[in-house]
């Protein structure tokens, strides 16, 4: 979809190095703002979806349809007393939520966003592409583990330990699940993956990759839900047994940072799923701007998260480990091997 737009260049605005950086920084700030807003409305969407699935209205008091509930919650969280227990590790206690937020936003450096008909926006498009998302999101384990350790509380520590074990176990399956996609597309750039096109008889154009890699999609979704610590993989913050897991001793803005990081990670997972397996902003019709199908797919995957949350009970710890190591990882490896054989046979 990389249509080269002929943008007017008065006075060399776009080629001036300093102005270039000004524009890049402005674009990044816009992206951060959009993500913050999106995270807030994901919370609203989750509460409404959970409510409707449980036959209750959900938030509907603040503003029309409860849409201003998030503004009220934000003010509440920001002005709340930021209480820290006495014996916390002062540096790591503050560093943990900071790592969480930084990692969540950094992943968006390589995620392309379909905006208008031929216009796609991304901050960087390096050769390693999605590997950068994996690299950055592997830092999340530090946030949860350090947050749990620095709080100096048994509940927090248990939550942190559980999250570290869980993230490492499912990172393997997550990475392996996408290898067939890379083999088919021949690129790690998310842009190339979303625009992957085929010549199948009369049809010529982009296809959703779920058609050729369905097993990858299933493994990806399960592992990704586990990576974001959501139900049914929310053992690190299991409220019935661990109070709040690694966030037990956090309050005020630091708690908000953990919460924000978790929701931004959810949006990242949903966006990657729609980009990799459902062709992102394709198909494009003349009457449909690119962001409409793109956004619709992301919302569907976010709804999947909320749907899972109301439907499934939490896994027990040994079931979690067995599912990750004995089911998903061997299945993902088999998937790679089968895809390799088929690819060699076809070409």
């Amino acid at each position: 979809m990389n249509v080269v737009l002929t943008i007017p260049n008065p006075g060399g605005v776009w080629t001036n190095p300093i102005l270039h950086w000004v524009i890049v920084v402005a674009a990044m700030l816009v992206l951060v703002f959009v993500l913050l807003t999106a995270a807030a409305y994901t919370v609203w969407f989750e509460r409404v979806a959970l409510g409707r699935l449980q036959r209750r209205p959900g938030p509907n008091r603040v503003g029309p349809f409860g849409l201003l509930q998030l503004a009220a919650d934000g003010v509440k969280l920001a002005t709340k007393e930021s209480f820290a227990p006495r014996d916390v590790d002062p540096v790591l206690y503050v560093a943990a939520p900071a790592i969480m937020v930084a990692a969540a936003f950094l992943a968006w450096a390589v995620v392309p966003v379909g905006i208008w008909y031929g216009l796609t926006y991304w901050i960087a498009n390096p050769n390693i592409g999605i590997l950068l998302v994996f690299a950055v999101s592997s830092m999340n384990a530090y946030a949860l583990l350090l947050g749990g350790w620095a709080s100096n509380s048994k509940y927090s520590l248990l939550g942190g330990l559980r999250s570290a074990a869980q993230l490492i176990s499912y990172e393997m399956a997550l990475g392996m699940s996408l290898v067939p996609v890379f083999m088919i597309v021949g690129s790690l750039r998310l842009n190339d993956i979303a625009n992957f096109s085929v010549h199948w008889g009369p049809y010529q154009g982009p296809i959703p990759l779920i058609i050729v890699a369905p097993l990858s999609f299933i493994i990806y979704m399960i592992s990704a839900v586990a990576e974001t610590n959501r139900v049914p993989f929310d053992l690190p913050e299991a409220e019935q047994e661990l109070v709040g897991g690694y966030v037990t001793e956090y309050s005020g803005l630091k708690f908000t940072a953990f919460y924000l990081g978790e929701y931004v990670n959810m949006i990242t997972v949903a966006t990657l799923a729609s980009l990799i397996f459902f062709a992102g902003w394709n198909p494009t019709f003349w009457w449909l701007p690119a962001f409409v199908p793109f956004l619709a797919k992301i919302i569907v995957f976010l709804f999947l998260y909320h749907w899972l949350r109301t439907t499934l009970p939490r896994l027990r710890y040994d079931m979690l480990m067995r599912l990750g190591w004995k089911v998903l990882l061997p299945l993902a490896m088999l998937n790679v091997a089968v895809t390799a054989v088929v690819l060699v046979a076809v070409t």
């Binding site: 590997l131 690299a135 583990l145 749990g148 330990l161």
Partner: peptide, 23 residues
């Protein structure tokens, strides 16, 4: 590629395991 692998494997997995054991 070496950059990505260095971060994913060493910083993201090996060191997290070390930290896990110490914690």
């Amino acid at each position: 590629f070496v950059f990505a692998v260095q971060v994913i494997v060493y910083a993201g997995a090996v060191m997290v395991l070390f930290l896990f054991v110490v914690a």
